[in-house]
Amino acid sequence: MKHCDTCGIQVRTSRQTCPLCQSALKGESEAVFPKIKSLYSQYTFFFKLLFIATAAGVIASVAVNLMIPQSGLWCHFVVIGAVCFWVLLITAIRRRTNIPRGILNQVFWICIFSGIWDAVTLWHGWSIDFVIPCTCMAAIITLGVIGKVLRLPPGDYIGCILADALLGVTPLIFYLANLLHFIYLSLSCVAVSLIAIIALLILEGDQIRTDLARRFHV
């Protein structure tokens, strides 16, 4: 037990000074609370450096592009690239403990970004012909396997498969709008998605119903 002569109060602590008046304490030290280390982690510093590096790269390329306009317009590639990099990185890190949600979010962003890249590189249609159907199909299969192998509770991954399968039906729109040059993958993706949706509704109908009820309760 320590004692503060100024306050006249007993203090149980490992401190040298009185927490109330900051004058010196006398007596035996006793720790009542642990010493908690700083939370500032090495990773924070790494990500800050990484951010500065990408920001510097983007700004420098815009500046250089403006200095030599005869080289054509190319700095927007760097900007979009930087945005893609950070969005995918943040999604991966934020969802690192929830694998099904992580996969679903990555699929969503990959579909969006492939569309954007295809559009800014003179639209050859490779995003809707190949990337979107392949990603959705791969994700549905992966989620189903992961769920079973890791024995996840159904509530944790059924919703993700369903959302992914709904995303996997969108190539049907491209097909009907006659936007596709290569129809095999898109139609396979739609088929796999529809089969997945039907299987889920029949096998996990109760789970999906309660899941929707709680997620959408008002």
């Binding site: 007993q10 203090v11 149980r12 000074t17 927490p19 900051q22």
Partner: peptide, 14 residues
């Protein structure tokens, strides 16, 4: 007079 003070504040927090 028997009041006892305890704290989680450290010396360098002061």
């Amino acid at each position: 007079r028997s009041l006892l003070i305890e704290t989680n504040l450290l010396d360098d927090d002061a």
